[in-house]
Amino acid sequence: MGNLFTNYYELAAMLLFVIGFLTLLIQRNLIKKIIGMNIMDTSVFLFLAAKGYVAGRMSPIIRDGVTDASLYINPIPAGLVLTGIVVAVSTTAFALALALRWYQQYNSLDVDWTALKYLLKGEK
């Protein structure tokens, strides 16, 4: 089993990733799919931030000019996640705009129902 239960942050992040992935795959509604994508986003961010954390150290803001690397946590994951969160919003907005155009075209957000109603009938 190794470190499975001592790495509880990573464990939770992986479980959240799988749940978001299944929501993205299985749900038929586009809004649900987009929420699943957001859950995957945040789980990856949680994993990155958990890898950067070191127990007992402080956030990477230099206190009193003391530049000792053994006092602060890793600043790299924080920088990556900070930009990632904001980019996740813009991708969410883009996906929602696409979903709204889908609704305008097909009058439904259910992917399976739309396929049944229009695509198969149209091909026959």
């Binding site: 956030s59 924080a78 904001v86």
Partner: peptide
């Protein structure tokens, strides 16, 4: 709790 306050501010405003 992961010592990343800037992420907390951003996530609270965004999420």
């Amino acid at each position: 709790s992961l010592e990343s306050p800037d992420l907390a501010i951003t996530e609270a405003a965004v999420g």
